[in-house]
Design a protein around this nucleic acid. Structure first.
Lengths: 228, 228
DNA sequence: ATCTCTGGTGATCGATCGATAAACTGACCC
DNA sequence: GGGTCAGTTTATCGATCGATCACCAGAGAT
């Protein structure tokens, strides 16, 4: 048993942290690791990132899955901290300006490699939290936007949006989202001016909504579907 | 030629296939497996899907990575088999009809759980083939669409599209793509009529392009960009 | 019937995975 | 100083991974 080998064993300084700090560090670094490697990333690689040994993880989380759940929680709750309800529904400001500002702030929060990759990885796992987030985008963002658009156009404010206009909002929202995917996941060249992209997307969305609103009140509209 | 399965009953014990057939079966089932589990899916699980033993895989592929590359090749080349060049550039037909038909056919090819999941998983791995595909969408689809739009609007046909209008096309394309993601990855409820969704998206894209074209040629108009 | 070629199996290796138990160590308290 | 407790490490387990090797077995040719 030569565990105490003579000679100054220059072990890496054992850095002791408080339980809370260490736990937060685990979650933070795990987010980085899983963002890059997916949730198959190893606990040993994670420990290496912290400069500690692998079993230490299990002092703070019962299992790797529990750690992953914490990562989910943190990532999915991050963009919610910006309080968009007030932003979208503040009718003292022009609708266009509200939408522009909201999407600039919202994309500032989620358009980064870490967030987008975790979001896509967890989406592929098909977990409930992902469906919850998508449902929240629908209820808290798109539905709200449509309500404001309808109010702005002098239309009746229904409690729930129609399926067609909701789809319109989704395509708009998805188009913006895909900008982030192209830039941070595919690392493809994009128009650098994000605000300009949002502005242009808003232009065509609002124009499309107007047209839809018009044709909704004016019933002579014919189906646009054309089949070759 | 050696494809003759004898009238003899298929024996559960050992099913012999020709080398080509077996190889194709490996690629096909691997696509299914990796679509669900990601590329971390095990070779043993794959063998189980074929009803064979795991080492057999290595008679047909030097390594798991080579199998994965075959899966890439097959998946990424699948939607290319529809020959969209003729479809988008056939000026004997109205532009609107061409675009509608193209996107209906294109989405028929890629809007399914298997294709989308493989695409996203491989995108997250950041491989060259993914960048190649994105570049191809840009060059073969979006650039072509913009050229046709410009021609349709009586504008000069530049060799390369401007950054702003290319971004417009990307947001439009991404919005449609995201419809597939919502339906087949997030399994969220979507507007069931896909053709209708495409039609609506086309409406606002074309309207947006027109407006952009107008403000580009007719300088009296106020710029569409509004900054809040 | 037997030979031969090749598709297919059984056994197993080394690496790596998540997880556990026990020992160690540093900081704080008296 | 010595005790104590929480943070950390060492050692290791069982499962699973990709991959390799020797061997088996079925179908066509002779």
């Amino acid at each position: 048993m030569n565990r105490k080998t003579p000679g100054k064993r220059v072990r890496a300084k054992q850095r002791r942290l408080s339980a809370d700090d260490r736990r937060n560090e685990f979650v933070a670094k795990a987010t980085e690791l899983f963002a890059e490697e997916g949730f198959g990333g190893g606990t040993r690689a994670l420990a290496r990132k912290l400069g500690v040994t692998q079993p230490l993880l299990y002092r703070y989380f019962p299992s790797k899955d529990d750690l992953i759940k914490e990562v989910y929680r943190k990532v999915y709750l991050e963009p919610l901290e910006i309080g968009w309800e007030r932003l979208l529904s503040d009718r003292s400001r022009p609708l266009r300006a509200r939408l522009q500002e909201f999407y600039e702030i919202y994309t500032d929060a989620i358009f980064n490699r870490k967030w987008l990759r975790i979001y896509l990885y967890s989406g592929l796992k098909g977990l409930d939290i992902n469906r919850w987030y998508v449902g929240m985008v629908k209820d808290k963002i798109l539905t709200r936007i449509l309500r404001e658009c309808r109010h702005d156009a002098g239309l009746a404010t229904q409690s729930r949006p129609g399926a067609a206009e909701l789809e319109l909002a989704w395509v708009f929202h998805g188009g913006i989202f895909y900008y982030g995917v192209r830039k941070y996941i595919y690392e493809a060249p994009v128009l650098e001016d994000k605000a300009q992209m949002i502005s242009d997307a808003l232009d065509i969305f609002l124009a499309g909504f107007e047209r839809m609103a018009e044709s909704a009140t004016d019933r002579r509209r014919t189906p646009v579907k054309v089949v070759g």
